[in-house]
């Protein structure tokens, strides 16, 4: 059982979106049987950032890998709540 760990930090906004996408891509390529997401140090999450998370989620579903949000931050919680996406990323 090898879990891929992906930690994203800082401002997960449109300025960082390209970089974030690369990290996401990287994590998916690692080919773990599951993915654990650590967002505890995310200070800001905008829609571009959310899109990245949605991208990650979808790719995991399609490749049959469970995705777990291991750690979150207030900014992340607030954003997910605002967009009605809490359930999607619940354990």
């Amino acid at each position: 059982m090898n879990i891929t760990n992906l930690k994203l930090s800082g401002e997960l906004n449109i300025y960082a979106a390209a970089e974030t996408q690369q990290a996401v891509q990287q994590a998916l390529l690692e080919g773990g049987s599951a993915l654990s997401l650590d967002l505890s140090d995310v200070s800001e999450l905008d829609t571009a950032g959310v899109q990245q998370l949605l991208l990650l989620h979808r790719e995991c579903v399609h490749s049959g890998r469970p995705l777990r949000l291991a750690a979150s931050s207030p900014a992340v919680d607030e954003t997910l709540a605002l967009l009605g996406l809490r359930k999607l990323f619940q354990a």
Binding site: I14, T47, Q51
Partner: peptide, 13 residues
Amino acid sequence: LAEMDPESCYVDL
């Protein structure tokens, strides 16, 4: 994933 532009918007509300 291959076609995704990180700076474009694809969502609906």
